[in-house]
Nucleic acid binder design. Sequence first.
DNA 1: CTATGGCACGGATT
DNA 2: AATCCGTGCCATAG
Length: 475
Amino acid sequence: MLQGPSLRQGPTLRPLTTAHLAQTMSLLELPAAELNQKIEAELARNPALELREIKHCPSCKQPLSGTRPCQRCSTPKSLSPEEPIVFVSPREDFFIPGRLSSQDLPEDNFAPHIEDLPTYVLKQVAPDLDYQEAQIAAFILTNLDDDGLLNISISEIAQYHHISLSKVKHILNQIQRSEPLGVGSPNPKEALLIQIDVLSERVPVPSLTKEAISEGMELLSKHQYVELGRLIGTSTRQAKEIANFITENLNPYPAHSAWGDFRQSSPNNVDVYTHPDVIITLLNDSLYSPLVVEIVSPFAGLLQVNNLFRNSLDQAPSDKADQWRSDIDRAELLVKCLQQRTNTIVRLMKRIIRLQRDFILFGDRYLKPVTRASLANELDVHESTISRAVASKTIQLPNGHIIPLSKFFDRSLHIRTILKQIINHETKPLSDNDIAKVLEEKGFNVARRTVAKYRAMEGILPSHLRQIRTSPEIT
DNA sequence: CTATGGCACGGATT
DNA sequence: AATCCGTGCCATAG
């Protein structure tokens, strides 16, 4: 990927060589976590590349990007809520665990405080427990693995704390029933069963789903629907529907924030998001304050070419000279490309965030359909540049959810969300045609066939299989 | 007869 | 150039 000989030139400003372009592109499509690895590897291998001394901001202790003052702490001039505060952060410790919450309440998905999973869950269960129970709950929660599953047995816990098995079970039950649903289950199967249990109180769940999970877990994960249907005594089609419902609405690994984010991902192939490329928070936890956008860009402004190394080039032993020179070239190229990468991402983000402020704050239904092409036009870059910048990147919203950046370019998300609402509020099951009508009244022109597709995407059953939901006023 | 899912086509998007 | 998406048509289930 790096071409040595072709760019053997002076160390001054280099014209845009093809190698340069190629590397800029490849860096652009790398998510932060991988970029981090790549640069670390290069730092270790290439003696011409060095890390500038990292200075930390005196007030917030975060590493500073290059020589600039802390962009996080310096008070912004404009406090217009519309105008996001965007800054680049080279933070090394960008691990922030993703969280999960009920996806059925898009209007309410605002929860500005970021905390780790154990704390988040503990806060939910603590009010219902006495002091000793809370201690045990805390103990349980610290033993969760990255998937949000519990890998020690109930009896171990009971022995350790000298209490009865039933008490542990009681506490664990409380934990499993808090958000993210199923957290603390010993395995994916249990987690799914809990989720079904709780979900069935709010949403229609296809019949036999529980049986499919408890008896046909293996078949499910292998997508063997014919056998599954036979096992639980139903048609293959119904089995497929169940499987579909499960992938769409449930999550075998409670700690992963991918509820409904992935249509194609199968239960055994769940994408994990842990290191977002962009983190959005609210300045004062207020909805009317600007969004604070932190672009996680490893080593941004911290890399430079070692001057000692460069100056000693003419004294290089003749057999090493070539090697040294190519090292310097590589280093320069990397620094430059990294700069370009951050620049592109910053410009892109500024635009996206201003455009999609409502979506970021208030949820899916406020997503404005934007294409990569239109954005490329506005920013005056090639479409493929945007594609690369968006690909395989993730972003953390103020509510703590980590979603793929590509979600910002979902053409139909807002309609699907409204569709979900229509169905949630329906008094009698509406047919796809009816729904298309309602949508049209709201100003969305979609064909009946398309409604069916959206419905399928959201894992909603066809009207004749839907039961009438209990009306909003619950006594 | 109505509602829905499968297939396939064409245009947009990447 | 390859892929995705909305849509129309048709078969089938209810």
